[in-house]
Design a binder for these strands. Sequence first.
DNA 1: ACCTCACTTCAACGATCAATAAAACGATAA
DNA 2: TTATCGTTTTATTGATCGTTGAAGTGAGGT
Lengths: 113, 113
Amino acid sequence: MREEENIGCGHEHEAHEHELRPAGVVERAAAMASAMGDIRRLRLLELLFDGRHCVSELAEEMGDSMSAISQRLKILHGARLVSRERDGKHVYYSLSDDHVRTIIGQLFLHSAE
Amino acid sequence: MREEENIGCGHEHEAHEHELRPAGVVERAAAMASAMGDIRRLRLLELLFDGRHCVSELAEEMGDSMSAISQRLKILHGARLVSRERDGKHVYYSLSDDHVRTIIGQLFLHSAE
DNA sequence: ACCTCACTTCAACGATCAATAAAACGATAA
DNA sequence: TTATCGTTTTATTGATCGTTGAAGTGAGGT
């Protein structure tokens, strides 16, 4: 036998019926987690906890360029974690809902232990 | 003025006092989210919902090599999402605690909407 | 001791990601 | 209209990530 790809190792396991979620759900969940999985994007979400902020405000607070912040926000928006609204010249971002707030809260809670 | 790095844009914002979490906490949270931010690793966590499983079992269920599974589990372990225990020739992995179960549950719940 | 089994690590490669700076965009004011 | 402001997009480039197969490890079995 050639040593190509060993799938499993051939021994017996107990039978298990796993109720797996639809691919779309897991994909979206992974995309959400992936978007949160960067310290700067997570800081951005943290800054949005107390309400909406515009890009320049966030850029100032994080000491980064607007371009950088805008790109991070775009990723967070793509993962449906934040929502956008334009108001005159400014664009305001906020956490998209309380569910998001809960998830991030849980994450911080677990990490603080 | 040269167009180098524009930090903010110089206009006035309302004063905000942001209670930011310690860097270590945010780093761990980001590491956790990042580890969950891959569809295959998330599937692995999903398979661990009903209790401990050994590497070969997971490899079989996912149709992947043990090498691949082992490396994914290593990343999940590094993020403190799963725990390891050796039992004879086998190594069993499980979700590290109920807190992790909660976070993943929330994530799936939000993504199912 | 030796061999095998279950698993882990290594190294090389390709693919994906993020930062920077520059250009483009959309809304408003003059 | 033209100018300016706040923001987004683009392109380049460097860094990081995940996969593969092969070699290494460690616990049992013979």
